[in-house]
Every structure is written in C-alpha cells, then in structure tokens.
Amino acid sequence: MQFFYSGITSGSIYALVAIGFNIIYNTTGIINFAQGEFVMLGGMFIYSMLYMMNIPFVLAFPVALFGAFVLGVIFERVFIRYVKVKSELNLITITIAGSIILRGLAMVIWGRDTLLVESFVPSKAINVYKGTITTDSLVVIGISLVISFLLTFFFKKTKYGKAFRACYEDKIAASVCGINVKAVVMFSFGIAAFLGAIAGVVVSPITYVTYSDGIMTGLKGFSAAVMGGLGSFWGGIFGGILLGVSESFFASVFPSGYKDAMAFLIILFILFFRPQGLFGRKKATRV
C-alpha cells in the first residue's frame, strides 16, 4: 500500500506536467519539450524568493507562478512566433533548443548544487490504510486535483476556453470567428508554464531543486501524456497517476535505479499496441 501512496504523489506531478503538454499540443499540435524546464524553474523561483529575498510563501507562490506565466509567454514570442516554416518538426526541435537554453541559464544563475526547500505546511506523516502519507504529498495531490477541475471548467464552460478548443480544431475557422489565434497560442504557452511551475513549487519540498531536474520530469510528463492520449486532460491525469504508481511498484521489485526505465517501457508498449493512448479521442467525424 505504501508504494501506492508514494506512487500517487509522484503521479500527481507527472499529471500536472502532462496537462501542460496537452494544453500546448491542443492549441499548436506540437510537443513542447521545454515543459520540464518550467517545472524546474517553478522550484527555482520559489527557492529564490523564499531564501534569497525572504518573501513569505503566501506571496512568493503566486509571484513564482506569475513569473513562470510571463516566461512562457516570452518563450513563445522568442522561440515560436517568428519561425518562418512552422512545420511541427521545426517547432519541436526549437522547443528542445529552448529547453537546453533555459537549463543552461538556470545552471549559471542557481549553480549546480541541489537546493533545499522546506515544507510549506507543517510536515507530518499521517497514518492511512496500511501505510503513511506525508502532508507534503497531500498538498501535491490536492493541488493537482483542484487544477484539473479548474482546467476542465475553463475549457468546457468559459468563452475563452471554447476559443482555445476552436483554435485546436481549426485555426483558420477560429480566426474568421474573430479569435486572435496568435494570442491564443501565446497564452497556451503561458498557461502551460504556469502549470509546470505549480508542479515545480509543490514538489520542491519533496525532491528539492536541481538545475537539471527538468529533463527527467519533462520526459515522465510526456510519457504520462502519451499514455493517456495526447490532448486529453483526464487521460493525462490518469496516465500520470498510473505512471507514478507503476514506477513505485517497479522500484519495489527491481533495484530502484531502473525505476526511470519504467516510464519508457510503458511508452513503448503504448506506442506498439495503442498509439492513440488509453483515452485518445476518436474524432467525431462523418465521411
């Protein structure tokens, strides 16, 4: 049971990262491989504000998220918008380049050492059915759930959420409906970075922050997104949890050094047997 609880905790993080992938995929059709760096930067921002500037957490948290949002928007403006030939391959390559640049900058600014972040809530282990779960993990799980519900509400019920979905389906048709497609793409990068930073902040007391965290987090989140079906929010959440839990059980049987391989094993199986993902939509079209 204990493996299950720790699996859910890391799974929630993967889920948040996977949602970030899905948002950008849904509006641009590309995979943003810099998503993991935004998670890392979220952790870095909160560390800097808490320990270098001594800003209280209640203020530092929103500022860190807002900073990430702005950074995401800038990322789109600098790396994506002015690309001449916007083929998916070009854009994906550029996001990889962007991720390397962000990682490099983080190394220069924050150094190579792992930075310690203390718990935001009084750290306590709570006994639950056949195991314990820490308050830090509960925060992670709770925030992931809230975010998932908020996002679903945004995309299903609000005017702007519907505009986002329209852009995903048909950019030209969306533009003749009066939607500024470029702005939507820009904001989707902002929101994705925002989500990544949330993940980065809430996980920082558990894993601490290192400049190179982004690669593995990004790849795991990507695996979770593929597992659930690219573009599907609840698929991403489910994929994240499933990945976290299976990783955790895998580590209980095999040496935990091989844990990271689990994600990629799962990806391979998904791609072999169910390329559209577990929850991949079949589009409702009539021929």
């Binding site: 979905r165 389906e169 009066g178």
Partner: peptide, 16 residues
C-alpha cells in the same frame, strides 16, 4: 469545429 457541439460552434462564432 467537429468535436464541439452545435451550440458551442455558434458560441465561438459570437466570440467578438
């Protein structure tokens, strides 16, 4: 917008 409902399509048209 094939995956959105008829009403949602019209709502998107009313964006401005």
């Amino acid at each position: 917008f094939a995956n959105m409902t008829v009403l949602e399509n019209i709502e998107v048209g009313a964006f401005t």
